[in-house]
Amino acid sequence: MNSIGETTLLIDLNALEHNYRFLKSKLAQETKFLAVVKAFAYGSDMVTVAKKMETLGVDYFAVAYVKEGILLRNAGIKLPILVLHPQHINFHELIEYSLEPSLYSPKILKLFLEVAKDKGQTAYPVHVKFNTGLNRLGFWENDVDYIAEHLRDRKELKIISVFSHLAASEDTNEKSFSLTQIETFKKISKELNQKLGYAPFRHMLNTSGIINYPEAQFEMVRSGIGLYGYGNDKAIDGQLKPVATLKTIISQIHKIEPNESVGYNRAFKSDHYRTTATLPLGHADGIGRHYGNQKGHVRINGKYASVIGNVCMDMIMVDVTDIDCKEGDEVVVFGQNPSAEDFAASANTISYEILTAISPRVKRVIINP
């Protein structure tokens, strides 16, 4: 008897706790822990995850945009929230909801300073990001003087952290580059401390950094994907537990004759008698077209079934010729087996993408609350 009845994303809070404790075990006791809950907690449930992490004792949260931080504040989250990519248009709301911006360029620093002054702020907490090689966001090393000159004697803002981001922390072939980034960050933060006359706390490590460069944990680390069960390494993945499991059911079973086609554009044509199962999820639910045509696969009654034909907006079809199954049976899209990483790899992408792609219309069910 099917236990879900419809396409459902199960969110296991026991797994979340396990992953948090595993990552914490790699750190010094005094190192602060920032939980990254952007993108709806990597496609799961941002409020539920944040509330659980608060009870577990994390020190900080991070989101990408101001509206995500507002959602958490409206849900009652009290911990500090770092906004990694704030936009000028949202600065007034950012202050209204006591969110903490990442200042990553001269323009953003100047604009936020103006808003803080306009709103009568004193020592408003800000974080300054430096670009040490990812080349995405961040001040350059030679901007230290500019930052110090603009903030040293200003009452409106107070730098409480400086941070950077490793570009390839999971890739051991890039160890030399990562170590150079770490040394550059050390030099920058030391110089900034001297010019400011005080020492903001530092953070640079992401999930893979925690595993591969624990000596650079500084005063805080940031973890996103690791909390949700993926460590960008098979050995680490084996010690983590997937938080999200995507399940669905078989809506209908078809008997396909030789030379019959399946799906739009007749993308699949059968070479012999086959049995197909139609599942109620598609690219509107986050399963992109790149998983079609025997690239993606799901698990039905312990066996793998390949996606055949093009992925439709609301449906996919899978080959169940050699699987004993019936309409209404449960289907595992990803979770423990296959994992989101396995499922994503079948279409040459990564777990981050499939996890964050799952549509809001997919039912969320919290287990082990």
Score class of each variant (00 low, 15 high):
residue 130 F to P: 05
residue 200 P to D: 01
residue 195 K to M: 04
residue 133 G to F: 00
residue 81 I to T: 05
residue 150 H to R: 15
residue 166 L to P: 00
residue 110 K to C: 13
residue 163 F to T: 06
residue 113 L to H: 05
residue 168 A to D: 13
residue 169 S to M: 12
residue 205 L to V: 03
residue 135 N to H: 14
residue 220 M to R: 14
residue 128 V to W: 04
residue 221 V to Y: 07
residue 154 R to A: 12
residue 222 R to Y: 14
residue 156 E to V: 09
residue 198 Y to D: 09
residue 97 Y to L: 14
residue 138 G to D: 04
residue 167 A to M: 01
residue 202 R to G: 08
residue 139 F to I: 01
residue 134 L to S: 13
residue 115 V to S: 04
residue 160 I to D: 07
residue 100 E to L: 12
residue 126 V to M: 00
residue 172 T to M: 11
residue 171 D to Q: 11
residue 93 E to G: 07
residue 218 F to A: 05
residue 101 P to L: 05
residue 109 L to V: 09
residue 227 L to C: 10
residue 104 Y to N: 10
residue 83 V to H: 01
residue 219 E to I: 04
residue 203 H to Y: 00
residue 220 M to N: 07
residue 81 I to L: 06
residue 121 Q to L: 04
residue 81 I to F: 10
residue 90 N to V: 09
residue 83 V to E: 12
residue 126 V to T: 03
residue 179 L to H: 05
residue 137 L to R: 01
residue 131 N to D: 15
residue 132 T to I: 15
residue 161 S to G: 11
residue 172 T to C: 10
residue 162 V to Y: 03
residue 170 E to S: 15
residue 92 H to K: 15
residue 180 T to K: 15
residue 112 F to A: 09
residue 94 L to M: 14
residue 84 L to D: 08
residue 161 S to M: 07
residue 91 F to V: 11
residue 189 S to R: 09
residue 173 N to Y: 07
residue 184 T to E: 11
residue 91 F to C: 10
residue 177 F to A: 13
residue 145 D to P: 01
residue 137 L to W: 11
residue 215 E to P: 08
residue 89 I to N: 14
residue 82 L to G: 13
residue 91 F to L: 07
residue 116 A to R: 02
residue 204 M to K: 00
residue 141 E to H: 14
residue 169 S to V: 09
residue 192 L to R: 03
residue 227 L to M: 08
residue 112 F to T: 02
residue 110 K to W: 09
residue 191 E to L: 01
residue 195 K to V: 08
residue 210 I to W: 08
residue 108 I to E: 09
residue 123 A to P: 09
residue 181 Q to C: 05
residue 84 L to H: 03
residue 191 E to V: 01
residue 114 E to H: 10
residue 155 K to V: 09
residue 119 K to C: 09
residue 198 Y to M: 14
residue 225 I to D: 02
residue 128 V to A: 01
residue 85 H to N: 09
residue 137 L to T: 12
residue 207 T to A: 08
residue 190 K to C: 15
residue 113 L to C: 07
residue 213 Y to P: 06
residue 149 E to K: 12
residue 118 D to A: 14
residue 224 G to F: 13
residue 183 E to Y: 13
residue 204 M to P: 03
residue 223 S to A: 13
residue 141 E to C: 05
residue 216 A to N: 06
residue 116 A to I: 04
residue 174 E to W: 06
residue 86 P to S: 02
residue 95 I to K: 09
residue 96 E to T: 12
residue 139 F to S: 00
residue 170 E to R: 12
residue 102 S to K: 00
residue 193 N to W: 11
residue 146 Y to I: 10
residue 92 H to S: 13
residue 225 I to R: 02
residue 116 A to S: 00
residue 179 L to V: 13
residue 164 S to G: 02
residue 204 M to F: 12
residue 223 S to E: 03
residue 199 A to P: 14
